[in-house]
Computed example of a mutant assay.
Amino acid sequence: MSRTEFITDFFGHVDATDFDWCQDYLAPDCRIEAPGFSQQGGEVVILWMAGFFAAFPDLKHRPYQVASEGDSSAFLVEVTGTHTEDLALPDGGVVPPTGRQLRMILGEFWTFDAEKVTEYRVIYDQAEFMTQLGLM
């Protein structure tokens, strides 16, 4: 399976909230870097994802423009969903549901060791995220 096919398949499992399958492809010491969040552990990546699904139950991901070389892949992901539940923040705070639609483009950069993701880096515009939720 090519990296592009794997990434597409991975997000199919993410959207189905098949997090056990996803965690099987994350190294136990996988590093996640996202705006306002930096941790280590495959299970932490899954908890981070699950937190967004808790707040946006209809969340969908569409990866595209995948570029891979050696042990790295870079790609864009269109993310859509509706904010219908509380969104937990890394500092322990909560954003109550706004009912607003979200459509964001994320940049993702993954590093692999064989079939496992060892680094999961996500970049997105936090101001755009807050604006779309009506918080800015």
Rank of each mutant, 00 (worst) to 15 (best):
4 T>G: 01
6 F>K: 01
7 I>N: 00
8 T>R: 10
9 D>W: 07
10 F>Y: 14
12 G>P: 10
13 H>S: 14
13 H>G: 11
15 D>H: 07
15 D>P: 06
17 T>D: 09
19 F>N: 01
20 D>H: 08
22 C>S: 12
23 Q>H: 05
23 Q>R: 08
25 Y>Q: 03
25 Y>R: 10
26 L>D: 00
26 L>K: 00
28 P>N: 12
28 P>L: 11
29 D>I: 06
33 E>F: 10
34 A>E: 05
36 G>H: 09
37 F>I: 08
41 G>M: 05
42 G>Y: 00
44 V>E: 15
46 I>G: 03
46 I>M: 12
47 L>A: 13
49 M>L: 13
49 M>A: 14
50 A>W: 03
50 A>G: 10
51 G>I: 02
51 G>L: 03
54 A>V: 14
54 A>H: 15
56 F>C: 02
57 P>K: 08
57 P>F: 06
64 Y>V: 03
65 Q>P: 00
67 A>R: 07
69 E>C: 04
71 D>T: 12
72 S>E: 15
73 S>K: 00
74 A>D: 10
75 F>P: 00
75 F>T: 05
77 V>W: 01
79 V>L: 14
80 T>V: 15
81 G>F: 01
81 G>S: 15
83 H>I: 11
87 L>H: 02
88 A>D: 14
91 D>C: 03
93 G>K: 08
95 V>E: 09
95 V>T: 13
96 P>Y: 09
97 P>G: 04
98 T>R: 06
98 T>S: 14
99 G>L: 13
99 G>N: 06
99 G>C: 07
99 G>T: 05
100 R>V: 13
100 R>G: 13
101 Q>M: 12
101 Q>I: 12
103 R>E: 15
104 M>C: 06
104 M>F: 01
106 L>R: 04
106 L>N: 05
107 G>F: 04
110 W>T: 08
111 T>H: 08
111 T>L: 11
112 F>A: 06
114 A>H: 12
114 A>G: 11
116 K>Q: 14
117 V>E: 03
118 T>Y: 08
120 Y>N: 05
120 Y>G: 00
122 V>E: 01
122 V>G: 01
126 Q>H: 09
126 Q>G: 09
128 E>W: 05
129 F>S: 00
129 F>T: 02
130 M>H: 11
131 T>N: 14
131 T>I: 12
131 T>R: 14
133 L>R: 05
133 L>H: 08
134 G>E: 12
135 L>Q: 13
135 L>P: 01
135 L>T: 09
135 L>K: 08
136 M>Q: 13
